[in-house]
Amino acid sequence: MHREEAFALWVLRACALFLVVAMASLVAYLGYQASGLFTIDQVSLGEFLTSFRFDPDLNHVGAAVFLLGSLSVTGLALLIGGPLGVAVAIFLSEIAPPALASVLTLTIELLVGIPSVVYGWLGLLVVVPFVRATSLTSGFGFLAAGLVLGVMILPTVVALSLEALRAQPQSLREGSLALGATRWETICHVLLPAARAGLGVAFLLGIARAIGETLAVQMVIGNASVFPHDLFHAAATLPTEIVLDMAGAPPGSLLQHALFAMACVLLGISLLLVLLVRMIARRS
């Protein structure tokens, strides 16, 4: 009997240890591959992060184009999906009749599960032709990618904002209404300030989803390793460049090292976002 107990505990311990080892080796392996860029290929970190020239055949691997591309597309997506998501969450928790709210919540939950390639496919067949028709360009570019990503992060933002709003005590609303405030004033001056930590988390996790998104963006952004001067021309982000170039990168080459270094940058941004979420959660 005691041996069974001890054995079970050891198995559970080993599984828990595996999780820690997996995460540690992920960081170590990717970091080691990326370090080749700085040790073997003698590229400086500053050049890698700030140079806009990406031309691996001529030994230029500046990733600034992709870094800036990732940040711009994510910002655009947040501009589209963020306010709309919070507005829908407010509608669901404060205004909608209960039957409508439950139907809409169900549909939005369904949207969370739709695979990212399907969003990319919809972007390719609906968004890109729409942008093409309105702007007289190819249609592939920042705007198409931002629109697709904005719709993609919408369910995440709605679900988390809704959670934050519903967690506010009913007495807050009653107190404000009893003082003669209108519903809009109650929402704007009482509820939103009270739920700001939760809303911040909703935005941060929306950003996290947008910045790591690969295929939905790759299908509509046009994939050009230059930084475009407007929203209607082809661009690229860190994940789209990785997924496109990895297949043709010879092992141990400059290009491969650069792609792994870009993956590390992406990983770093994601970890930073989670750290922020943790800090917010701990403070409130």
Partner: peptide, 23 residues
């Protein structure tokens, strides 16, 4: 430490996980 590792693992973008799998 285990909880932290799980949270960190949860944030890894899927393309980065794919590169780790490739490695």
């Amino acid at each position: 430490a285990i909880q932290l590792a799980a949270e960190a693992l949860a944030t890894v973008p899927s393309i980065v996980m794919g590169l780790f799998g490739l490695l």
